[in-house]
Amino acid sequence: MFLQIVSSGIAIGCIYALIALGFVLIYKASEVVNFAQGDLMMIGAFLVYSAVTHFHVPFIPAFLIAVIIMAVLGKGIDRLLLRPLVGEQAFALIMATIGLGILIRSIGGMIWGYDTFSFQAGITDRPVRMGSVALSSVHIWIIAVTLLLIVGLYYFFNRTKTGVSMEAASQNQLAAYLMGIGVKKVFSNIWAISAMVATVAGVLLTPLQFLNYNMGFVGLKAFPAAVLGGFGSIPGAIVGGIIIGVSESIAGVYLPEGFKEIFAWIILIGVLMIRPEGIFGIQERKRV
């Protein structure tokens, strides 16, 4: 029983981790916090859903099409909204992505309506026996895909030339620029990658939750995950996401009603009181 709670916690934690990963990628590169990440996830999931149910595309091609569309959308957001705002105050940037989230959500509602849809995303839920415990196949899928994606991203950022130049640009924009790395292009690619990751998160979330234009609000819970992870470290985001997911699912079973919804936030505030820079964060200090 307890192992099942933990495994479902890890599964939902993986989703948080993937959304948090989207925040972190963009934040590392451009110090923009994308409050619309959850809404991008919603669009991604709906694109796959539409392709499969309305256009009868098989699941895998449908997923690939959605990922490509989302990458283009991510680049578009960067070009049209964020690039003109480079150098604005943090407050304006936060509000800009909040506005973007509201806009995306209402457009999603206009296109797909306000009803709730069930969509299994090609994954059928059946129990998988592992020794004495029975785990849900959906959970195993989610964990496996997340692991695969993280390994892929790790390889990309550390081993490929594009990835390394992106990593460099996020550490020091000016130096990267002087070394001939196109910083604008890097930002644009980061947005594309993070929209693609959002699509994956969306598709993985649909077997756990219903599809709804409002499902982006789940993305807000990835904030505690990202903050725990120090908002700038990819492994941090993953660990943070899983901590939040597991503790939330344990709270849902063992604590009184209501705690499950806000447990992530309670952990967040608790951690910030002790370590204001998050568990894996680095203290920032201004030189005078």
């Binding site: 916090v33 943090a90 936060i94 807000l220 904030f223 505690p224 903050v227 908002f231 009184p256 009603e257 209501g258 919804e261 806000i262 992530a264 936030w265 309670i266 967040l268 505030i269 910030l272 009181m273 204001p276 820079e277 998050g278 920032e284």
Partner: peptide, 28 residues
């Protein structure tokens, strides 16, 4: 008081969390 040590983004997220917590308290 706890927000004293937080800056910018972390403060925004912590206050957002406080908002959710109060909302849930009202419900419960």
């Amino acid at each position: 008081l706890p927000a004293l040590r937080l800056k910018g983004l972390y403060l925004a997220i912590a206050t957002m969390g406080f908002g959710f917590i109060v909302e849930e308290i009202i419900v419960q």
